[in-house]
Computed example of a mutant assay.
Amino acid sequence: MSAPASRPFYVAVGNEEKVFKAAFRQGLSVLLKGPTGCGKTRFLEAMAYDVGRPLITVSCHDDLTTADLVGRYLLRGGETEWVDGPLTRAVREGAICYLDEVVEARQDTTVVLHPLSDHRRQLPIERLGQILDAAPGFCLVVSYNPGYQSVLKDLKDSTRQRMVAIEFGFPTPDVEEKIVAHEAGIGADAAAELVRLAQAIRRVENGGLREVSSTRVLISAGRLVAEGLSPREAAAAAIAGPLTDDPHVSNGLREMIDAYLTGPEAGRGN
C-alpha cells in the first residue's frame, strides 16, 4: 500500500503528532490508547503521510495467527511458495505496520512482536530459518481501547514496555464540531448540535452503554443530515441504533435526542 496522495484530515488535540514523529525518527514502536471512534486510525493515516511511509493495517481478532502476520507456504500452480504476511511486507519495505485492536489477537501471536519492538528491530521467520532486519522507515504501531477490554484481554507488560504510548480521548467540543462539519459536509450549527448531544451522552454514568457516542458516529449522523434526514432521524439511526439493543436504554437515548436536537428544518448547511 502506498502513502496517500493528500494528507488525511486530522486536527491535533495535543502533542500527539510531535510525540509520534519523534518516536518514528528514533525507530521506536508506538502504542495508541483510546476509546473506539476517537480518531486513532485517522491520526495514523495523517502521520504516515507526513513521514512519507506506506501504511499496512491489520485488524486483529481471536483467530489471528502468527502465520497470518508473518507469512506461510501456499500451493500455487502445483508448486509450494512462500507468501509474506502483512507484518513481513512492512519489515521488508520499510512501511508502517498498524495492528488495530492488538489485544484481540492471541498472546502467543503477539510475542512475535517483541524483537521488532525493541532495539533489535528484527523479525524471526522460523519457517524460512531467517531473521529479517527492519528496513529504514519501518515502524510498528498498535492500538487498543483500555476501557473496553476485559482483564483477560490486555497487553502484557513485556509488550507495553517496548513501546511509546500516546493516549487519545474525544476532542474538545470546538475541535469536534470542526471535525464533524468537515467530514460530514454539514453546517457549523448542525455539527454543534450533534456534538452537544454526544457530550450529554458521555456525561451519563452507568447508562447501560458499553461505549458512548464517538466522533465516528457523529460523522455518520452528519452524513445522513447532509442527505436530507432531519437531525433527529439521523441521530436515531447513526447514534442510538448502533450504541444499544436494550429497549430501555434506547428509549433514554431517543429522549436525549429529542431534547438536544431540533426539527427537520435544521442542520442542512451553513
Rank of each mutant, 00 (worst) to 15 (best):
I179S: 01
A259Q: 12
V151P: 02
A184C: 09
E227K: 14
L194C: 04
I201P: 01
R203P: 10
I257N: 01
R196L: 06
S150H: 14
G263L: 01
S213T: 15
K178A: 07
A192C: 02
R254M: 12
G267L: 05
G187F: 07
K156P: 13
G263Q: 02
S150N: 12
L261M: 00
G269I: 02
D154Q: 14
G263T: 03
A259G: 02
A238V: 13
R232T: 00
H182N: 10
L209R: 12
R232H: 01
F170D: 11
R223P: 05
P264L: 04
L155N: 08
F170P: 09
I201R: 10
G228V: 06
I179D: 02
L140D: 07
V141H: 03
M256S: 03
L155A: 13
S143A: 15
T159S: 14
H182Q: 13
E177R: 06
S250D: 04
V151K: 06
T244E: 03
V180S: 10
G169I: 03
N206R: 12
I166G: 06
S250H: 09
G208P: 14
R203W: 04
T172H: 07
N251Y: 06
A191Y: 02
R160K: 12
A237Y: 12
L253Y: 07
L209F: 12
D154A: 15
I239T: 14
S158W: 02
I166P: 01
R202A: 10
D174C: 02
I201C: 13
A221M: 07
G207P: 14
L229Y: 15
R210C: 01
M163W: 06
S158P: 09
V142S: 15
Y260R: 06
S143L: 12
N145C: 05
K178E: 11
V212C: 12
V151Y: 13
A240Q: 07
D174W: 08
D245K: 09
L194M: 10
R268C: 01
D246G: 02
A198K: 10
V217W: 02
E177I: 02
T215N: 08
Y144T: 04
A200V: 13
D246S: 07
R162M: 04
A234D: 14
E167W: 05
A191T: 00
L261A: 05
V225K: 01
Y148T: 09
L197T: 11
M256F: 00
T244P: 01
A184K: 08
R210M: 10
G137C: 11
Q149W: 11
L229Q: 15
L197F: 05
G137T: 11
L224K: 14
E193I: 00
G169L: 10
E265R: 05
S143V: 11
